[in-house]
């Protein structure tokens, strides 16, 4: 456990040294820039746009970090050959993967925390309401980021960085469209199509279940039980990916 924490903290420090938090500047420019740009719109729309924009920016910035830092977690260590010095110590490969994952999780958490503070402050400035649903949506965004990080980490244990990035992005897109797959399966008259589509549906992560942005901006909250189940789903799927990543990494030669 101690080893995992050490690696996690190391990863976090490394992320900070890589100037990951510069993205917050990008976030602030996006959020405040747009707010200023749209200031001459009517008051109602203006508030809505700031609310939408903030949620979208938090999500987008988070996903970019999750994918592009996530794929580098393991592959960079291997490319720089620093992985040998770590593996020479009494640290198992599973601990290494877990530590790396927890480290990025911490980075993402801190990142989101700062973004949320800026976001809420912006909403205050524009006197936009802060419904409870907004925080629900942000929590589910964080779960989504954990899932995407796990995807990136999983792919990077057995393929190159570029390929991992492409695959993770691909799964991110698919994850938002799988509900349509299910719809197609239900409407199809062919049993084979139905079975294949349903199979793919349960195999691919369903990120749309974690997406509450549209409703949250309208102030419509979801029941807590839904939030709990959806979070459980995201975390279970992430656990599955991390376990698979550990299993692959155990058997990998480098």
């Amino acid at each position: 456990m101690r080893q995992v924490v050490v690696i996690a903290l190391n990863t976090f420090r490394e992320n900070l040294r890589d100037k990951i938090l510069y993205n917050l500047l990008f976030f602030a420019v996006l959020l405040i820039g747009f707010s200023v740009l749209l200031a001459d719109l009517t008051i109602m729309e203006h508030q809505k746009i700031v609310t939408d924009m903030g949620l979208a920016a938090i999500n987008l910035v988070g996903v970019i970090i999750a994918i592009f830092v996530g794929i580098g977690l393991v592959s960079k260590e291997i490319e720089r050959r620093t992985v040998y010095t770590i593996m020479a110590r009494p640290i198992s490969r599973t601990q290494f993967i877990l530590g790396k994952y927890l480290g990025l999780m911490l980075t993402l958490f801190v990142n989101i925390l700062i973004m949320v503070v800026v976001y809420l402050a912006t909403l205050q400035v524009y006197r936009a309401p802060v419904p409870w649903a907004l925080l629900q949506a942000i929590e589910l965004i964080f779960v989504e980021l954990l899932l995407v990080t796990a995807l990136a980490l999983f792919f990077s244990t057995f393929s190159t960085s570029t390929l991992s990035a492409i695959m993770t992005l691909g799964f991110y897109v698919i994850g938002h469209l799988t509900t349509d797959l299910k719809g197609i399966a239900q409407k199809s008259h062919s049993e084979a199509v139905k079975a294949v589509m349903t199979g793919i549906y349960y195999l691919c992560p369903n990120l749309e279940m974690l997406n509450m942005k549209g409703q949250a901006a309208m102030g419509a909250s979801v029941p807590l039980s839904y939030q709990a189940w959806a979070s459980a789903y995201g975390l279970l799927y992430a656990a599955l990916l991390i376990s698979a990543a550990c299993a692959v990494f155990q058997r990998r030669d480098f």
């Binding site: 349960y202 959806a230 789903y233 279970l236 599955l240 155990q250």
Partner: peptide, 27 residues
């Protein structure tokens, strides 16, 4: 490892089934 992955995968699929059921009709 195989059984661990299977259990986790099954749990994830099961939760997904629950979640989509719970997803408010309004949404």
């Amino acid at each position: 490892t195989g059984s661990l992955l299977l259990v986790l995968g099954g749990a994830a699929a099961g939760t997904l089934a629950v979640v989509e059921h719970q997803r408010p009709a309004m949404v």
